[in-house]
Simulated assay, not measured.
Amino acid sequence: MIPFLIFAIVLSQGKGAFLLAGYNTMSDSEKEKYNEKALAKFMGKVMYGYCFCLLLWGLNELFETEWLFIVGFILFIGLTIFALVYANTGNRFKK
């Protein structure tokens, strides 16, 4: 969880977009079309969500309750679907 949290902190400051898969493989002319800071901040928020899911999974192991794992898993799947749809529709991160 700690690496995810560090990555989330860096991204939420609008930095570290070069670490995002897909963005770092674009050509420079293609990167100029995107708002790098907004994309990084959005992905930082997504990473905070993933950290929360990992926290729930850790608490599941600690307290030996199945429902914490299920809630974390549902949140993980829901967050992933939301992030994919939100980031890839509506040209939200284009300049």
Rank of each mutant, 00 (worst) to 15 (best):
G49P: 01
A40S: 12
Y86F: 13
E61G: 13
F73K: 09
F52P: 01
E64L: 04
Y23R: 06
G78L: 06
D28N: 15
T80P: 05
K33Q: 12
L39H: 06
W67F: 15
I81L: 13
E30D: 09
K45T: 01
Y50G: 02
E61C: 07
F82G: 01
L19D: 02
G58N: 10
L79P: 00
G58V: 02
G49T: 02
L68V: 03
S29C: 05
A40E: 01
L19A: 08
T65R: 10
K37N: 12
G16A: 07
K37L: 06
I77L: 13
S29V: 13
K37C: 06
E61Q: 11
G78N: 05
L75F: 10
F42M: 10
L68I: 07
L19W: 14
V71A: 15
F42K: 04
G22R: 01
V85W: 02
L75A: 14
F42R: 02
W67M: 11
T80Q: 09
N35P: 05
L39T: 03
I74L: 09
Y23S: 08
A40G: 05
W67A: 07
F82L: 06
Y50F: 13
V85S: 00
F63D: 13
V85F: 04
S29H: 14
W67N: 13
L62R: 13
G22I: 04
E66Y: 15
C51P: 01
T65L: 13
F69M: 10
L19S: 10
L55I: 07
Y23K: 05
L55G: 10
M47S: 12
K41P: 00
G22T: 06
E64R: 07
N24H: 06
M43N: 14
G44H: 02
L39D: 03
Y48W: 08
K41E: 04
L68A: 13
F63H: 14
G58F: 12
V46N: 04
M43Y: 15
V71H: 08
Y48I: 00
S29I: 14
L75C: 08
Y48L: 05
E32Q: 15
G44C: 05
E64A: 06
F18K: 10
S29A: 12
L62I: 06
M43T: 07
Y86K: 02
T80N: 11
D28Q: 15
M47C: 09
L19K: 04
S29Q: 14
F52A: 08
E32L: 11
E30T: 10
C53V: 05
K37S: 11
G78V: 02
L55M: 09
G49R: 01
I74M: 05
L84K: 03
V85K: 00
I81Q: 07
Y23C: 07
I70A: 14
N24I: 02
K33T: 10
L19H: 08
L79R: 01
F76W: 15
F76R: 08
K31F: 06
G44L: 03
F76G: 02
G78S: 12
M26C: 09
V85N: 00
K37G: 08
A38P: 03
K41Y: 03
A38Y: 11
E30S: 08
